[in-house]
Lab assay of single mutants.
Amino acid sequence: DHWEIRVGDITIHLKDVDEEIIRWVEEALRNGDDLEEIKRWVEEVLR
């Protein structure tokens, strides 16, 4: 699977990601969370 999350001008590409993570990231972006923080979290989860 390949996911693209778009929020404003930001697009995040994710592969082999659980839908729950996608929802979490979308929510975090909508809440204005720091992008670097989100990326770190996702990388942590995917490890």
Rank of each mutant, 00 (worst) to 15 (best):
E19T: 11
I12L: 09
H13N: 10
A28L: 06
I21E: 01
E20C: 05
V42C: 01
E44D: 10
L29K: 01
E26R: 13
E26V: 15
R47L: 15
D16P: 12
E4I: 13
K15Q: 09
K39D: 02
D18F: 15
I12E: 02
L29T: 01
R40S: 11
K15G: 09
R47I: 15
H13F: 12
A28D: 00
I21S: 02
W24D: 02
R6M: 13
W24F: 09
E37C: 07
G32T: 10
W41T: 03
E4K: 02
R6G: 06
G8Y: 03
W24L: 09
D16R: 04
I21P: 00
L46H: 01
K39R: 14
E19R: 11
D33Q: 15
I10R: 07
T11S: 09
G32D: 07
D9L: 11
D18L: 14
I12Q: 03
K15T: 12
I12H: 03
L29W: 03
H2Q: 10
G8F: 06
W24Y: 13
H2F: 14
I38F: 04
D9Q: 09
D33M: 15
R6D: 08
V42A: 02
E4A: 07
W3K: 03
T11Q: 06
H13K: 13
G8T: 04
H13M: 13
A28N: 04
D16L: 06
I12T: 02
G8Q: 05
E26M: 15
I22V: 11
K15A: 10
E20R: 11
D9K: 05
G8E: 06
L35I: 13
H2R: 11
I22T: 04
D16G: 14
E4M: 07
E44A: 06
R30T: 07
V17C: 05
R23T: 05
D34C: 15
E19Y: 12
W24K: 15
I10Y: 13
I38W: 03
R40D: 04
V45F: 15
L29H: 01
E36V: 04
I12D: 01
D16Y: 03
E19D: 13
L46G: 01
G8A: 08
I5H: 03
R47M: 15
I12P: 01
E36L: 06
D34T: 15
D1Y: 11
E4W: 09
D34K: 08
E43S: 04
I12G: 03
I10H: 10
L29F: 07
T11K: 05
D34M: 15
E19M: 15
A28G: 06
K39E: 06
K39W: 11
W24A: 10
E37D: 13
R30S: 04
R30M: 11
G32C: 15
V7S: 02
V42W: 04
E4V: 12
G32P: 14
D33R: 14
R40P: 00
R23L: 07
H13P: 07
D9F: 09
L14M: 09
E4P: 06
N31R: 15
L35W: 13
W41P: 00
E43P: 00
L29P: 00
I12K: 02
V45L: 15
E4F: 11
D1W: 13
W24P: 00
L14S: 04
N31F: 07
I21A: 02
D16K: 05
R40M: 08
E37V: 07
